[in-house]
Design a protein around this nucleic acid. Structure first.
Length: 524
DNA sequence: CTTCCTTTGAAGCAC
DNA sequence: GTGCTTCAAAGGAAG
């Protein structure tokens, strides 16, 4: 497998990820991943219908969050906010961007939506807060803004569409990557070693050297994006989201005082706010009713930095959601997974780079943190129990039945993937070389195999793990057997049909018992 | 209320 | 080194 990634050494992605990269010569539609998802969505929606869950009415997206919208509107009208309280303050700190790492619920403008650790936050957001379709446009605007009525808390919304129609949106500096608005971390609580807010952000209180400023400097203050999020700002994991100075003129008059904690102390000379700038403001917030001494003593849950795909999902999810009424994350993720594979190498590289920076910054902020720390934070699944059941059933000569939900059978698309994947004729026609075919994204390949094989079966992770064992997959991830961009694998499903086993067509039911046969490779 | 689903990738752990 | 597991986001569904 040729290593297509030339940026030596940087963990831009796992080597096997490169398999998915588009062949250089295969021009991807720039709309890859951004194009219409109608093909996928139609399939998924129809599958959902078959599952007996009609998609929510479109009107749900149009329901405004009245109070918030009103606040924002009034702010924009100057009722609440007359100009930048801190001239030149170039950052947008979205308080409710809820840090997965620190998840400081106190920042939430809405109060106690999430409590101290607001992490999983969106669950409380009613469907009506979903922006309407026009709000999700091309994400070429890294500028974040306070949208009228929509998305102060819509952390997932990827698009500058968040930018209110009322608010002029200025495209970021031309050569700034759309995925690279500056972002900073909150410091509440800030890890040891981080300079307190009263200190110069440039000086590390411990070493006397440039502290975070140096960090930011080397990360990107000097022309290189410091810390990036996808354009338009999917909710950033860190509580404070800063935008670089190029946005300041736009942001300055649009910030809500609730949204933008005024820097009690100066800005970093670079224009990047020290994370602790947020802290005093945060401390001035009304005490969270949920914050008990116990919770305060709790060690903050520092979440894992998002990987490239997660970043991509956060950026694109809202767009997919907006393109149809489909909101079920599982289905959306399937679409996004397929889109991900259909992205060009360059487009994926954006996210790998973004993820790399995220990890880098995360490691700098939390040098002692380890992913291990979060092990067990989520409820441990009863995999052992399931595995035992599977083994028992396997011994009985059949695949394990889903313990809880019906099997998810993925129909391969009757039509190619929308947008980027739909322009993959070259793959089907004549891949220049086998390696070129291997280098192609999975979606085209999947489409290829889809045409040859009408059905694929998506099994539960446990089952996939079993498949992985028996198939000697080169992937390091057990979950990737069927979904990895192995060009000849069945690829990501385009439609999801989860039927009760009893309602499943006999052919599908039969397929369930033949999992490996569904992941096939063409004869060499 | 909790867990699952579903995706990919990173990291940790066991062997 | 390999392979498996867990977690990261998301929100509806199911238990």
């Amino acid at each position: 497998m040729p290593q297509l990634e030339p940026t030596g050494g940087d963990d831009l992605g796992a080597p096997d990820e490169l398999i998915a990269f588009q062949d250089e010569g295969e021009e991807q539609d720039k709309g890859a991943g951004r194009g219409s998802a109608h093909g996928d969505l139609d399939e998924l929606k129809s599958s959902l219908v078959r599952r007996g869950r009609p998609p929510p009415p479109r009107e749900s997206f149009q329901k405004p969050r009245d109070s918030l919208a009103e606040v924002v509107r009034r702010q924009q009208d100057g009722a609440f906010f007359k100009g930048p309280p801190y001239p030149g303050y170039p950052f947008l700190m979205l308080p409710e961007l809820g840090s997965p790492y620190l998840a400081n619920g106190a920042l939430s403008p809405g109060g106690a939506r999430t409590g101290v650790f607001g992490g999983q936050g969106l669950r409380g957001v009613p469907a009506g807060q979903c922006p309407s379709l026009p709000q999700y446009l091309q994400m070429k605007w890294p500028l974040l803004d306070v949208p009228a009525g929509a998305t102060l808390k819509d952390r997932s919304s990827p698009s500058p569409a968040h930018l209110s129609n009322k608010v002029p949106v200025v495209q970021h500096a031309h050569h700034m990557h759309p995925l690279t608005p500056l972002i900073t971390y909150s410091s509440e609580p800030f890890p040891p070693g981080s300079p307190p807010g009263h200190l110069s952000p440039d000086i590390d209180p411990k070493t006397g050297e440039r502290g975070w400023g140096d960090t930011w400097g080397h990360l990107g203050v000097q022309g290189q994006p410091v810390y990036s999020i996808p354009a338009g700002g999917f909710r950033h994991p860190y509580p404070a989201l800063a935008m670089n100075a190029s946005m300041s003129s736009l942001m300055s008059s649009r910030f809500s005082p609730h949204v933008v904690p005024p820097p009690a102390h100066g800005l970093h000379p670079s224009g990047i706010p020290h994370p602790t700038i947020v802290s005093p403001i945060v401390k001035q917030e009304p005490p969270q009713p949920s914050s008990s001494p116990k919770e305060e003593e709790k060690k903050p849950h520092i979440k894992k930095p998002l990987n490239a795909f997660m970043l991509y999902m956060k950026e694109m999810r809202a767009k997919v959601v907006a393109e149809c009424t489909l909101k079920e994350s599982a289905a959306i993720n399937q679409i996004l997974g397929r889109r991900w594979h259909s992205l060009s190498r360059e487009e994926q590289a954006k996210y790998y780079e973004l993820a790399r920076k995220e990890r880098q910054l995360h490691s700098q902020l939390y040098p002692t943190w380890s992913a291990r720390d979060n092990y067990g934070k989520k409820k441990k699944r009863k995999r052992e129990k399931l595995a035992q059941q599977q083994q028992q059933q396997q011994q009985q000569g059949s695949l394990p039945a889903r313990s809880k939900k019906p099997c998810v059978v993925s129909f391969l698309p009757e039509k190619p993937c929308p947008s980027p994947a739909s322009s993959h004729g070259s793959m089907l026609d004549s891949p220049a070389t086998p390696s070129a075919a291997l280098a192609s994204p999975a979606a085209p390949a999947a489409t290829h195999s889809e045409q040859a094989q009408p059905l694929s079966l998506t099994t539960k992770p446990e089952a996939r793990a079993q498949l992985s064992k028996s198939s000697s997959s080169s992937s390091s991830s057990s979950s990737s057997l069927l979904s990895r961009p192995v060009p000849f694998a069945s690829g990501a499903p385009s439609a999801l049909l989860a039927s009760p086993p009893g309602a499943m067509p006999a052919a599908l039911a039969a397929l369930q018992t033949q999992p490996l046969s569904l992941v096939t490779k063409p004869a060499d």
